[in-house]
Design a protein around this nucleic acid. Sequence first.
DNA 1: AGTTGGCACTCGGGAATTCTGAGTGCCAGA
DNA 2: TCTGGCACTCAGAATTCCCGAGTGCCAACT
Lengths: 340, 340
Amino acid sequence: MLDDRKLDVLRAIVEDYVSTREPVGSKVLVERHQLGVSPATVRNDMAVLEEEGFITQPHTSAGRIPTDKGYRLFVDKLTSVKTLSGAEKRAIATFLEGAVDLDDVVHRSVRLLAQLTQQVAIVQYPTLARSTVRHVELVTITSARLLLVLITSTGRVEQRVVELPSPLEDDVLGELRAHLNTAVVGRRLSEAASRVTSLPEMFHRDDKAVVTQILAVLAEAVADNRNDEKVAIGGTANLVRFGEDFDRSIKPLLEALEEHVVLLTLLGEATSPSLVTVRIGHEVPHEQLAATSVVATGYGPGDRAVATLGIVGPTRMDYPASMAAVNAVARYVSKILSEA
Amino acid sequence: MLDDRKLDVLRAIVEDYVSTREPVGSKVLVERHQLGVSPATVRNDMAVLEEEGFITQPHTSAGRIPTDKGYRLFVDKLTSVKTLSGAEKRAIATFLEGAVDLDDVVHRSVRLLAQLTQQVAIVQYPTLARSTVRHVELVTITSARLLLVLITSTGRVEQRVVELPSPLEDDVLGELRAHLNTAVVGRRLSEAASRVTSLPEMFHRDDKAVVTQILAVLAEAVADNRNDEKVAIGGTANLVRFGEDFDRSIKPLLEALEEHVVLLTLLGEATSPSLVTVRIGHEVPHEQLAATSVVATGYGPGDRAVATLGIVGPTRMDYPASMAAVNAVARYVSKILSEA
DNA sequence: AGTTGGCACTCGGGAATTCTGAGTGCCAGA
DNA sequence: TCTGGCACTCAGAATTCCCGAGTGCCAACT
């Protein structure tokens, strides 16, 4: 049904439309691409492509634009992931290498991604659920108040103030700290709570209540999955470039960017960095964003994806370039996380 | 020159223009406000106000709109800071009270502020320069690598990986940790570096190099003023409401929001929470944002302002309401920081 | 003095209208 | 199966028209 030439025509339409932002007609198509046939022939092919639902006409006397289905075919079959130039790779490496801590890595990544793709970039912080405990620290604030600090292998730091029912001696505190760390360091956060249930038994009657209280706060902190909604966003200014229909594309997107929970559903489950997920138009799980596409992938130390990053943009975007950039950034970030 | 009635007219113009978004003419003005005079009289007053530069005509056959100078007079002389309703105050209190840590406080504040004012909200993280050290922690990662964690009184956490020139015994590490904390806890971060210069002397020759290295990283961390550029932004979606001239007002603002350094110059120096700073149009230190106003104030535990928060919006905004909201949020955040 | 009604004048911007050319579908011929 | 030719369509730019909100000014009034 769709011979090679028709696929070539579709590819040409997608590429032209993405770069010119104008519906493309049969004449310019044969001028700009070496199709080796006349406009009339291309018109026939276009008619077929339209019938099959890959392209459409905004209005009778205009050229064709790809439909979501058309982009889908393009992404799946008509293009391969571009590889970045050496200069770009080096730029990524040097830009990310200056990062001093996790926050810095995330912020640099999001800026970089926005810059490379000229789209809105989103980077999710490593999920606590998939991190392990690096260290737990207890810092005295006052005699009735203590700061619980939890440091994860991915560099995230959670802190909670604990109100103490009764004061705690320094040596008891030291003991608790030691026990706590031997119990949970290296463990998944999800296991942490269950690993410490027996700890209060190791203390004198008087201190049990305090210890229990501290452990309760710890359990609460690791269970608090609101924290896994943490994301960084960049490149919002790039929204202005797809200025055309403000209300239909920019407004809902700006609103979605405020709702981090929504963003995470857009990014989807963290996949391996080598697998780039593309969601096009109506495939995006949010009907307000029917004019939007998402390109995302997972990242994390080694091959263990601990979170997702990606970009959001108009369905009319340069998919090969976006996929390449997302992939490259995810790889570099993963590498950095492996080292740290 | 400007008698009371002329000021009333100006106030009426500002209020009407802010709520209707339309240039206001002499006729509707007398209809909507009890000025007790005829349109003709109001016209005469308007002519004077225009001559003095407080209002202007977009074009000959239109009503008047306030100039920056007009808004300035309005803010300075014609309005007092509204006080929020009891319900609003309670809403603020309960919304902010659920915060578990600094990040949470900042994010909640920025959302709250955006919601209350229906503008773009900005909250600067407490500046390190004005914070004191609460605790310094050294966590071993590998024998050649160590994590330096710095916790401030305002709840900010800085971390740095230290590459060790040679391994460090556990007891030496413990000793260093203790010395380090007695030396810097409670001190300003700016003093921290100088407080520890003599520490290496307390260690054996072999360990001096390692200790020096660790202290160097600490010094670097406290000196790194890039960290004071940390801000949270919320309510970007509110930008869509002043949709009119996209290029002149939204685009530059979106761009500015990406540049955190620029934002900080907008917010300005942290003032006492009771002093709300208003910058109107051209008074904003960035000519691209000539159609934008900023309402900001400082916040911090007690009366010591450690950072700034505020909102950014079109010059045509409800200043009394914005000022009240900014002020209220700053007070509550300050209160929370005092307690933590 | 300051205030008011009357009146001629201005002009932005919405509505109606015209124009143009890019693009199409179809058909007959190669 | 491809191609050149041709009549047809129609969105959007350009043009024109028109209305009425709003003004400034002046003479009269308090």
